[in-house]
Design a protein around this nucleic acid. Structure first.
Length: 279
DNA sequence: AGTGTATCCTGCAGGC
DNA sequence: TGCCTGCAGGATACAC
């Protein structure tokens, strides 16, 4: 559910409120969302001051004042919610609650509990971050650089985009939207993309992701920002979930295919399939 | 190396 | 109304 734009939305919501505040209390009603031992998590985090709110790929990254870092991956249905004192009842699937100095709470809520929270020391976080691919919105990534990386893999380009070790932050919704925009079929082997196509994929990535951030993310069902509000990008999706509708570019039908265990949405007129493959 | 499958969970939509 | 099946934006482990 939460991909780069949704995580970025949450991070921007939290950033004005968390840095400088201390975690004075930690409650963990659902310990299975903690990677590692929940008791160790609590004692590592309690009493620490939050230094910043960042994003890396699909992870919310919360550096602490002792050099450690809390990393939150929202999985499919995770939410980080900001709760001022005295507001509302707790969410339906509260998994972790951080009490903050000065009042208020940061809550982690997760229906399916596929999300994970963990604390890493400085080298641990450095290693983890190094396992992730580059940020698509980072200026350092160029069309030539992306093309070179694509050359090393024969995986389908959609699978390549979903692999967090190759590029960070892209999930199934935006991968499909980006490939439609770039007019590249999702099953095309990564290494079969020419330099021009790689450039089109990169500029489409940037356009789609920034447009989605501007609309505060895509809510199909579960996503909420840190204040509990849905995002507004769903109506701007061109192919994702639009099987049978007309391609907004050419009018042909949008098709749903499945590979890698997940649905892909394509206009087979705009997006030529690789040779020898059914749509 | 890459792919298919299963797993972790719950809620919801659709068919009957 | 109820029961059943399939499906979901993610990550990971496994066998082939």
């Amino acid at each position: 559910m939460p991909e780069l734009p949704e995580v970025e939305t949450v991070v921007r919501d939290l950033r004005p409120h968390l840095p400088g505040r201390r975690i004075v209390d930690v409650e963990i009603p659902r310990g299975d969302v903690i990677r590692g031992d929940p008791g160790a998590f609590r004692s590592d985090v309690r009493g620490r001051r939050l230094e910043a709110v960042r994003r890396r790929g699909k992870n919310v990254v919360l550096p602490l004042d002792d050099g450690a870092t809390v990393v939150v991956n929202l999985g499919m249905t995770g939410r980080l919610l900001r709760r001022p004192d005295g507001s509302d009842s707790p969410p339906d699937h509260l998994a972790v609650s951080f009490g903050l100095s000065g009042g208020g709470h940061l809550l982690y809520d997760d229906v399916r509990r596929f999300g994970r929270l963990e604390v890493l020391d400085a080298p641990g976080w450095r290693r983890r971050s190094a396992e992730l691919g580059p940020e698509p919105l980072d200026r350092e990534l160029t069309g030539e650089g992306l093309h070179a990386r694509l050359q090393r893999s024969r995986a389908p380009i959609r699978s390549w985009l979903l692999d967090q070790g190759r590029i960070a932050g892209v999930g199934n919704i935006y991968a499909n939207e980006v490939l439609w925009r770039a007019e590249v079929h999702p099953r095309r082997p990564a290494r079969s993309l020419g330099p021009g196509e790689a450039g089109a994929v990169l500029s489409s990535l940037r356009e789609v992701l920034t447009a989605a951030i501007r609309r505060r993310g895509t809510t199909i069902r579960d996503f909420r920002d840190a204040d509990g509000r849905p995002g507004e990008f769903a109506s701007r999706l061109r192919v994702y979930g639009r099987e049978g509708e007309a391609c907004p570019r050419c009018g042909a039908g949008v098709e749903r295919i499945v590979f890698g265990g997940r649905p892909a949405f394509v206009c087979s007129r705009c997006q030529d399939p690789p040779s020898g493959v059914t749509p």
